[in-house]
Amino acid sequence: MLKIKDLHAKVEDKEILKGINLELNAGEVHAIMGPNGSGKSTLASVIAGKEEFEITKGGVFFENEDLEDTAPEERAHKGIFLSFQYPVEIPGVSVTNFMKTAINESRKARGMEDMPANEMLKMIREKSEMLDIDRKFLSRSLNEGFSGGEKKRNEIFQMAMLEPKLAILDETDSGLDIDALRIVANGVNKLRSKDNAVLVITHYQRLLEYIVPDFVHVLHDGKIVKSGDKALALELEEKGYDWLKQESAV
């Protein structure tokens, strides 16, 4: 589904991604771990098409198509979703209104009519119940004054509404309390199917107990320095990153 080939990317002349290779197939869950500043969010942004980052070498392929000339909104229409590490506030725009716009824009891109209001309402009810979100919350301005945890839960609500093929979760677990973590993880697992793939960026192995990955990759200084199965996450939790940093320096 997603193929990243020798990806190099820079921002303002600073090279951040230095040759990443990664392949996600439908039905798989991959986790990316790695120290602060290693380039995890950058990788997520590049996949989502943020223009700030310039690809200097290699590329990102989605369903065998080079995404280089694909605008961020078109990537979204194709089914790529990013749960942001730092969700952005949009004052005056309610969660519901935002979702309605997002869903109908994607439908329009696929040549479909707007979603009928009752269908939309039903979906909102279902998904908000699944994620244990109070409906009052949905009429508030998007992310404005939301607590850290509320923002993250709201990202997953959006994911559930948009039903993407590829979901990238950038530290969605940070800021969630223990109960919320379980609820959110549950929401992600509900999306999992043989047709979808999930890329989980996290610092903590705890999330991976709920969303069990097929593969774990360690990103360090813009490169994947080690890959393994879920046991690798446990090992990292125990040993930290130093041993890998040394290994990769050799």
Partner: peptide, 26 residues
């Protein structure tokens, strides 16, 4: 960042601006 956030949800830039402006003027 606001515009990219909207873009990522499938909303093109023009529509994103309209949305943000409407929110501001609500």
């Amino acid at each position: 960042d606001q515009i990219f956030y909207c873009n990522q949800r499938g909303i093109d830039t023009e529509k994103a601006i309209a949305l943000i402006v409407n929110g501001f003027s609500k």
